[in-house]
Simulated scan of single mutants.
Amino acid sequence: MIVCSCNIVSRKDIEQVVIDFLNEDQWQLITPGKVFQAVSARGKCCGCFPGVIDIIVETTERYHELMQSPAPKVVDLLNRIADQRVRIENAKKRARLKVAV
Rank of each mutant, 00 (worst) to 15 (best):
A82T: 11
C46E: 15
V75T: 14
V39C: 03
P50I: 03
L66H: 08
V74M: 04
C48Y: 02
I88Y: 02
A41G: 08
R85K: 07
I14M: 04
N7T: 10
Q16R: 11
P50M: 09
R85Q: 12
R94I: 15
C45L: 05
K73L: 12
A71E: 15
Q37D: 13
R87L: 06
A82V: 12
R11F: 05
N7P: 02
P50Y: 02
V39P: 00
A91R: 09
A71D: 14
V52E: 01
F36Y: 10
P70D: 11
K73V: 08
V35P: 00
K93W: 01
D83L: 14
P32F: 01
R42P: 00
G47N: 08
P72A: 07
V35W: 00
K92H: 13
K98A: 10
D54T: 14
K92I: 11
F21L: 04
L78C: 01
K12R: 13
I2Q: 03
K93D: 07
M67P: 06
V99Y: 09
E61I: 14
T60D: 04
V57W: 11
V18L: 09
N7V: 05
F36R: 03
M1R: 15
I30H: 01
R96N: 05
V101K: 13
V3D: 01
R42G: 11
V74Q: 03
D76C: 11
I2C: 10
E58P: 02
F49L: 13
W27L: 10
Q28S: 12
A38D: 03
V3H: 00
V39T: 08
P50H: 04
E58M: 12
